[in-house]
Amino acid sequence: MMKTLLKVEELHTHIGQYHILQGVSFEAREGEVSVLLGRNGAGKTTTLKTIMGLTPASKGTILFEDEDIKKRPTYVIANSGIGYVPEDQGIFADLTVEENMKVAMRKEDDATLARQEYVLDLFPDLKTFWKKDGGHLSGGQKQMLAMARAFVHESKLLLIDEPSKGLAPIVIEKVMEAITEMKKSTTIVLVEQNFFMASRIGDRYTLIDDGATVHAGAMKDLIQNEELKRKYLGIG
């Protein structure tokens, strides 16, 4: 059985007076793509933000490589090997593509530059727009830049939030190809509304509803479970 890289247990998060996460539990196994599914507002994005320490957890545990990272600052979590691609991509709009990549690079040695070349081969469009401001990229290009930035280090775990959101089908296909390639060398936790995409690249799923985990299992089982899909995803 594959080793568990990330284990989230009974996670609770408050934002202001709102109790957003009310018991999210799931795990990500090494080399797999774990998909968090659920309707809008279910708590998927907050789950990723809480793992990154951006919205602090009020209760529960977040075990990464068997260590609880719940109280660690965001930059320490990132440096421990977790890359993050936020829902809004978090592109620095007034920095060029090159500068966006530089901010993400902790070193500029030969190994990191070689890694950057490898990442850019996954997203060749970025080379074309290397000197263009991040704010002037299309939605698809921004998504690719956000993923390239998170992947420029050999992260052990990548958290990717809604990579297909607002993108044309042809661009979604490119993003899927890139995630499939990234999966060969890293573990991925993916938040995705597009069930077609999620079902193609996901190995395992966790259904979140009203801020809590309601179901989890192998993706191939969910594909065949019409009732769950209808009840929690509104499909079918």
């Binding site: 965001t74 990132a78 440096n79 978090g90 920095l95 993400a104």
Partner: peptide, 10 residues
């Protein structure tokens, strides 16, 4: 431009 993202990049 984006403090949160800078932190998330380590």
């Amino acid at each position: 431009m984006n403090k949160e993202m800078v932190q998330a990049l380590g």
